[in-house]
């Protein structure tokens, strides 16, 4: 056992993280004391290191622009956010778009549509389209992560808006990028997926439009979103890649593309923390670690 290089590597890795974890937490605390907060340094930190869960929400709020960089404006702006939330909700209730039995995620969707000026007439509301479903999936995941409805709505809205603005143009290229890295890591699996016709049908929208919402449990998901929120959509490719690599044997045994898709849309939920950890390692290996001093 002691000779198992993989095991040795892993335990030394965890030791390192355990030791470094304390140092990292301290350096984040120093960053969070800055006024104004330095968004670039916060992003770099969050790209390089895991966010301690006690600071995660605060970092997300600042990086997503829900709160401004100046800490002494936070109380006032927090008040604005709250007013805006209640104003919109009240109007939707009066116009009968929502009532007390409407699921929160649907309420958030209507609020978002109202703000984006795409709210359909009440009588013309139909089943959610693909884009609405993406929004709802992200909302359901965010709702699992955050208890407060005001924070939850604002973070969903800012996340979705930032994702489209920053990465809208890159998203269509991610499947090609996945194919490229898969050819480097496991050409045999790539060939199998191509030959069976599964490659074209992989759950790209679940992976790259919903950012794994509904695919990974929240504890793993938020570690992926840390990287997305701090400025990388490439991480999504490596999480997808690591899922494929982790279930390689299984996937090589499935010959029908529908079977592949069904499996990938419902991956086992036990192993996902390790998958995300390995995905982040692979991502750092191929894309480098941001080098700015923290």
């Amino acid at each position: 056992m002691a000779d198992d290089p993989q095991r040795n590597f892993r335990s030394s890795y965890y030791e390192k993280v355990g030791f470094r974890g304390v140092e990292e937490k301290k350096s984040l605390e120093i960053l969070l004391k800055d006024n104004p907060l330095d968004l670039e340094k916060l992003s770099t930190f969050s790209q390089r290191f895991p966010l301690p869960s006690m600071y995660r929400m605060h970092v997300w709020k600042v990086l997503l622009g829900m709160l401004p960089p100046h800490s002494d404006s936070h109380t006032m702006v927090g008040g604005y956010r709250k007013e805006q939330y209640h104003d919109i909700l009240e109007a939707l209730e009066v116009m009968r778009y929502v009532n007390s039995s409407t699921p929160c995620t649907h309420v958030y969707l209507r609020m978002f549509q109202l703000e984006s000026q795409v709210l359909p007439r009440c009588s013309e509301i139909s089943a959610p389209d693909e884009e609405n479903e993406d929004f709802l999936s992200i909302s359901r995941a965010m709702e699992e992560i955050i208890d407060d409805p005001i924070d939850c709505y604002w973070l969903i809205k800012c996340f979705v808006n930032q994702f489209h603005t920053k990465f809208g143009d890159s998203i269509p290229h991610l499947p090609k990028s996945l194919e490229h890295y898969l050819s480097q890591e496991e050409p045999r699996l790539l060939k199998h997926l191509k030959n069976t016709g599964a490659l074209a049908q992989l759950p790209y929208s679940l992976w790259f439009r919903r950012c794994f919402a509904g695919c990974l449990p929240e504890s793993s998901l938020q570690r992926v979103w840390d990287k997305v929120i701090s400025g990388s959509c490439k991480i999504l490719v490596f999480v997808a890649l690591e899922i494929l690599l982790s279930y390689k044997i299984m996937l090589l045994g499935i010959t029908r593309p529908e079977g592949v898709v069904r499996f990938l849309c419902n991956i086992p939920q036990e192993n996902t923390d390790a998958i995300v950890t390995k995905a982040i390692e692979l991502w750092h290996k191929y894309c480098g670690t941001p080098m700015h001093a923290v």
């Binding site: 104004p36 401004p68 404006s73 956010r81 104003d87 116009m95 109202l114 703000e115 709210l119």
Partner: peptide
């Protein structure tokens, strides 16, 4: 100046939301 600008934007965002609500109503 930066701080003031950010605060103004965040305050205006409430106003914009109100305007959309008015139009719908």
């Amino acid at each position: 100046k930066c701080q003031a600008k950010a605060e103004l934007q965040d305050s205006d965002s409430r106003y914009q939301a109100q305007r959309r609500i008015t139009q719908l109503l």
